[in-house]
């Protein structure tokens, strides 16, 4: 039995239930229950942007196998802003890599827009990453040989057909929005950490992906810059962008709408941020 909203696997006797058109649905928490009540049709008929179903992941180190994710099931819906929390080593990055199609699973299924990905070839996966997903990493991960502008436009570089977005000045608007107008000619090493991360965010957004995945985007930044970056994410989500952000800073997690907790590779809780 699975939570139709957050996708979590539920125990035998779930406490939160809901009825819609004479069918019973179960939920992990009151949050999911009320979420469902607001718009049942969305969850019954719609497809999540990302769905993991009974995902297991273990790393094969030759002599030993390291199990990292255990039966992980979850759903991310369009317009979500999810914070993925958990102590270091709990499997957050592994889960993100799987959701971002950077890594494969040992067992279980991964759906992007309802499409199962396990049978896709590496080219198709690369195409999906290019088209639908934007990544932001803790280490910024800009290419040292390229200047700021070229780094930001890199996703266009790997498109098989030229994109309209590339021509219509989206790039300059974006560079303006992230406040890097005076930095376009600079190489990553000539930029501050905050500037680099803003460039990385611009790169993740430049071809308007459906989903932005950020793995500890503020982890290498001081708290003030970190807060600024989180504000960027906040604004993005207000404009409707779907976001998943890994963090172990609960202050930063507060910016998200929904918080998932991972412990030893298991999802242990899902709750909404009600403050706002």
């Amino acid at each position: 039995m699975y939570d139709i909203v957050c996708g979590m696997k539920l125990g035998d006797k779930p406490t939160f239930k809901g009825l819609h058109k004479r069918k019973t649905y179960c939920f992990c928490t009151k949050d999911c229950q009320s979420e469902f009540k607001k718009n049942p049709k969305k969850f019954i008929e719609g497809t999540p942007v990302v769905e993991l179903k009974n995902v297991y992941k273990e790393f094969d180190l030759g002599r030993v196998k390291v199990p990292v994710l255990h039966d992980l099931s979850l759903k991310i819906w369009e317009g979500d802003f999810v914070a993925l929390m958990g102590v270091s080593g709990s499997g957050k990055s592994t889960a993100m890599n799987i959701m971002g199609l950077l890594d494969d699973v040992t067992k279980g299924k991964v759906y992007i827009d309802g499409k199962e990905t396990s049978k896709m070839g590496s080219n198709e996966l690369a195409g999906l990453r290019n088209e639908k997903i934007g990544f932001v990493f803790q280490q910024f991960n800009l290419l040292g040989a390229l200047n700021c502008r070229d780094n930001i436009s890199l996703p266009f570089f790997f498109k098989k057909k030229s994109s309209k977005l590339e021509q219509n000045g989206n790039l300059d608007k974006l560079i303006n929005n992230v406040g890097l107008k005076d930095r376009v000619e600079h190489k990553p090493l000539e930029m501050s950490g905050g500037e680099q991360q803003r460039a990385a965010i611009a790169r993740a957004l430049v071809d308007e992906p459906e989903l932005v995945i950020a793995d500890e985007p503020t982890g290498n930044l001081d708290s003030k810059t970190g807060k600024m970056i989180m504000d960027e994410f906040r604004k993005l989500n207000d404009k409707g962008k779907t976001l998943i952000v890994v963090t172990h800073d609960s202050n930063i997690a507060n910016a998200a709408k929904r918080v998932l907790h991972l412990k030893d590779g298991r999802l242990i809780s899902n709750h909404n941020n009600h403050k706002k």
Binding site: E131, N141, L143
Partner: peptide
């Protein structure tokens, strides 16, 4: 990085 951004093999 390039693969994450969408570079194919």
């Amino acid at each position: 990085i390039m693969k994450a951004i969408g570079a194919t093999d």
